[in-house]
Structures are given as C-alpha cells and as structure tokens.
Amino acid sequence: MCLGVPGKIVSVTDIMGMRSADVDISGVKRQVSLDLCPEAKEEDYVLVHAGFAIQIIDEQEAEETLKLLQDLTGVDLPEAESAS
C-alpha cells in the first residue's frame, strides 16, 4: 500500500528551521523532508515515502536478515553479490 524506497542521504540542509536532505536512490536525487526522521544524518540510508524520510534503515539488521537467510538456506552468496 505504501511505496517506501531506500535511499542514501548525501547532504542535509536547514532552511528556515525545515530540515531536508538530498537522498540518492541509485543515482536519482530527490529532496526529502526530515521532519519525521530528525535524527537522520549524512550517509544514513532512509526509507523514502511521499517526499519524506519515514525511517532510518538499520544497516546491521539488514545484514543480519541476509545472513539469517543464508544460514537458513545453506546458500553462501559471493561477497560481491551480497554487498551489492
């Protein structure tokens, strides 16, 4: 129901108390508001929905999910692929 796209914060700006970030989604840049994610900072990956960052992606959890999947299935992915 709700499209949320992971993107990386490349810069944060503060215009008249409104914090926003330039988010890079695979080479596409979109300015998003940080009103709902005030703690997000440069280099963080955030979920982007309707012009807002709605959550910071937990990189450690993301890696663990993949690791869990690999353990579960007994499939070892080549480094390059799992890190891509």
């Binding site: 990956y45 690999q70 299935t73 692929e81 891509s84």
Partner: peptide, 19 residues
C-alpha cells in the same frame, strides 16, 4: 544494483527458501 533492493531479489536464496 540498488542497495537494500537488489540483494532481496536473489534467485539462489529464493529457490532454497521455497524448498
């Protein structure tokens, strides 16, 4: 390659998960 997207479309993992 889209970070946090591409790795969750891996065909090998998918196959074994289905198994």
């Amino acid at each position: 390659t889209l970070k946090y997207i591409s790795e969750y479309r891996d065909p090998i993992l998918a196959k074994s998960l289905i198994t």
